[in-house]
Nucleic acid binder design. Structure first.
Lengths: 348, 348
DNA sequence: GGGGACGCAGACAACGCTGTCAAGAGGACC
DNA sequence: GGTCCTCTTGACAGCGTTGTCTGCGTCCCC
């Protein structure tokens, strides 16, 4: 006859209820549960039965207040509706779940607050680790976590930072591979539709930052190696509309390019539709390469050639880095670089 | 000169550090923070300054242990990589974030444990509300939450259940509308590629359950109203492969259908590619309708006609139902039904 | 000038759990 | 029979908050 507590009509079973039912002290229940000190077989069984009869489950808040790990890892993504990030989250769950950890997924642009604020919130929840994803170069958001001694993995950042591990895609290599692929198909006049430039959309300009800039850098390197001086970079929003606008800009030129590298698949698909809508043949009149290999890349017609980023595997790597740091806090942070694979389809 | 605590190299500022720095008691700090009892302006400012200087943030675990709400709502989805569910999550965040609530997204099939177990875990974390999504008819998973007095919304379930609110799509109406659309285009021999049947894949059969069954029911109702007796339902996995297999089955018939309703867009896209690969014209030889209006539906060529489910709006509604129940626990649960819109593209 | 009202702030006891200290029972051994 | 283990269990403090009780001035009014 355990004495339950009723609050607002809610009833929750506490450890003392289990103890009363099993006829032991709460200490014994706790230790029977955690196995952190020996408990006789008979007692353990009585406790176990009481737990089942009462459907007892320890209060996580009380546990973590006592300093126990929360077995929770925060995964901060810029936009949960971008299919890229659920894949990342899934990869992390692949590794975290079997170890009993929960991924706490936060979409930062859905929040009215800054990413740094989200990090603070997660620290207040005492998460055991944090993964921050998204292309940006500012790692100061992660500082409070580093100071608090919570393992952090930056995902998509280039620069390693003291106390922080990173998981990054080799975007320079990817940009080079994509461009070399087009060169090998005989194209010489190759353009790049990139993300927004700092000085606003314009033809060319060295002002872009972050991994899109890396992809452009790879593109430039490939052209240079091939002895081609004409580079053609347009900027715009990273979206289908941005891709369409970029393509319009390119097609309006006196000498439109024969092939276009696009900073991601959304942009490429937008560019492709713009070209198709104008009656051009893809890849006959203009060949296209994207990045990321999102689901839709295989579904559009012609199917999009793209540089595949093994995002789920990268998520797994990020999770593993966090678990390693949790297990061994003194371990130095690591920087992991992932290569990309050309997935050739019909658009080149 | 606040005395910080160092644990495993982690340093966290506690309320007592703030109190010491501001020269007041911890009680005063607490109340200055919560505003739950009057604090003089001068004191409030001193406390505020101390908080900022120390970067203090209350420990959420201690708060919720004292019975404060966690301002967290669990969102349990079957598969985070299915683009449908991030939209749902995003819709919920649209409503939750401005109210200061966090969505805790859990992908249940990533977990090695049952959905019921996840519900239990969320209760142990003292979430303030739970949204369970996914097509299935078993609401027993939600029982522990109902018993604990935690607001629950079932998403995609048909049957209301005592103490549980539901947000559901009118799948019967959607199935009917899709079929009527094909009828109005002059098709008479119309098939349906459905989800798995309980008795295994087969031609027709009344054994399917859940909303896919509802869509089939709407399809049947439309045919009946039109005076058409020939119904043609094939079953298979809800995936692109399943759609391709279903289409193969249909094309192998003596009299293949002129039009096919598919239980969702993935299935429809798989079916479309199978048809295109066999040299058929879509919609000339076979017209296709899907459900859900996923991103890819607009991207494939021909673009897919589909029944759009305003999933994000439904997520918003689900979140609102939970917030309402939190604000007013005695309020009876509500069942919300959402209609669907035909988005006509090129496949019909 | 005394009594009550009021504004403000501190002390203290929980919340539910776990690590540590301590002790009782029982057996082994001298 | 007494001492010393070992095995098992219980009591207790404390994790960082917040709600409540209490107390101290100050002001107002009769």
């Amino acid at each position: 006859m355990a004495a339950r507590r009723f609050v607002d009509g809610k009833q929750r079973v506490r450890i003392v209820d289990v103890a009363a039912r099993a006829g032991v002290s709460i200490t014994t229940v706790s230790h029977a549960l955690s196995g952190r000190r020996p408990v006789s077989e008979a007692t353990r069984e009585r406790v176990q039965r009481a737990i089942e009869e009462l459907s007892y489950r320890p209060n996580e808040a009380a546990r973590s207040l006592r300093g126990q790990p929360t077995t929770t890892v925060a995964v901060i993504v810029p936009d949960i509706t971008n299919p890229f990030y659920p894949q990342l989250a899934r990869g992390m769950q692949d590794v975290l779940s079997p170890k009993g950890y929960q991924a706490l997924i936060c979409s930062s642009d859905a929040e009215p607050v800054s990413r740094r604020e989200i990090v603070e919130q997660m620290l207040a929840r005492r998460v055991d680790g944090i993964c921050i994803s998204g292309y940006y170069d500012d790692h100061t958001d992660a500082e409070p976590a580093v100071e608090a001694g919570v393992p952090v993995v930056l995902f998509g950042h280039r620069a390693p930072y003291p106390g922080i591990s990173t998981v990054t895609t080799d975007d320079i290599g990817a940009g080079r591979l994509a461009t070399e692929h087009l060169l090998s198909r005989g194209h010489e006049r190759i353009a790049f539709i990139s993300g927004p430039s700092i000085s606003g959309p314009s033809i060319s300009g060295p002002s872009d930052v972050g991994p899109p800039a890396d992809r452009v850098a790879g593109y430039r390197a490939a052209l240079e190696s091939a002895g081609i001086a004409d580079e053609l970079v347009v900027h715009g929003p990273v979206s289908r509309e941005g891709g369409a606008a970029g393509m319009r800009q390119l097609l309006a030129l006196d000498h439109p390019p024969q092939a276009v590298v696009c900073t991601n698949d959304f942009v490429a698909i937008g560019a492709m539709q713009e070209a198709l809508d104008r009656g051009l043949d893809v890849p006959g009149d203009v060949a296209l390469v994207g990045f990321d290999d999102i689901d839709a890349a295989a579904l559009v017609r012609p199917a999009l050639t793209t540089m595949a980023v093994a995002i789920r595997r990268q998520g797994q790597a990020a999770a593993q880095l966090i678990l390693d740091r949790i297990a061994n806090p003194d371990q130095p942070p690591q920087a992991t670089l992932f290569g990309t694979d050309l997935v050739q389809r019909q658009s080149t």
